[in-house]
């Protein structure tokens, strides 16, 4: 074998990318969670960009702060941010090999998720009762795209919250049984924080702007 080729092979094998190492300094499962988060972030980016585009080409748009119950929306934001903070503490407790504390924090996180989902169900119910549909709404100026964007964006996000609560429930049960790893709790936490990040965008650009 050519000596320069052998040297190059040796260099690659010794590098981070030569196999047997973790180039990103993290576990496989955590890295896959990051890849999922990036792809899901692009999905939401698509939704929000489409919303921004529709809004820009619309001659008028209903005033959201007068239509939505902003006290409720702010409370939902508070619930999600608080649950995110508690989730970060759950990850800390899991990393410190304290399953009891991790379980308690996970339960608090799940409660925060349920509060958010309950508020969203209440908001949707009232919105639909007032005549909002994905193809029409009673508010002036009557732009159908307003409610279409509302149902798609908040619905997709709500589905993510529901999925997150389900995932956290599984992780919490495993933590209670002592069958958990710090990686599992951290991956569930990454997903939950991502759901929080998406809501930060929705809160600012859909409800306030």
């Amino acid at each position: 074998m050519d000596s320069s080729l052998a040297a190059e092979q040796q260099r690659i094998l010794a590098s981070d990318w030569g196999g047997g190492k973790s180039p990103f300094g993290t576990s496989w499962s955590k890295f896959m969670m990051w890849i999922f988060i990036i792809s899901d972030a692009l999905t939401f980016a698509g939704f929000l960009i489409a919303y921004g585009f529709m809004r820009s080409i619309s001659p008028a748009w209903p005033k959201q702060t007068e239509i939505f119950n902003m006290v409720l929306i702010t409370f939902m934001t508070f619930a999600l941010i608080s649950s995110s903070a508690v989730m970060a503490m759950a990850v800390g407790a899991a990393r410190a090999s304290n399953p009891k504390l991790a379980f308690r924090f996970l339960v608090l996180t799940i409660i925060g998720g349920f509060i958010f989902l309950g508020c969203q169900a209440y908001e949707w119910t009232h919105f639909i009762e007032e005549g909002a549909r994905p193809w029409t709404n009673p508010w002036m100026p009557a732009v159908p795209q307003f409610t279409a964007a509302f149902f798609v964006i908040t619905g997709f996000h709500g589905f993510h919250v529901f999925s997150g609560v389900t995932i956290l429930a599984v992780v919490a049960i495993r933590a209670a049984m002592g069958k958990y790893s710090g990686d599992q709790v951290e991956n569930a936490g990454l997903y939950w924080h991502f759901v929080d990040v998406v809501w930060v965008f929705v809160f600012a650009f859909f409800y306030l702007l």
Partner: peptide, 23 residues
């Protein structure tokens, strides 16, 4: 949220870059 809750500030620079490039 990304830096503190998601611990991104403590990750390797290539993971941070791969996270923000799609954005």
């Amino acid at each position: 949220i990304a830096a503190i809750f998601m611990h991104l500030r403590y990750e390797r620079i290539n993971l941070i870059l791969i996270t923000f490039t799609p954005l």
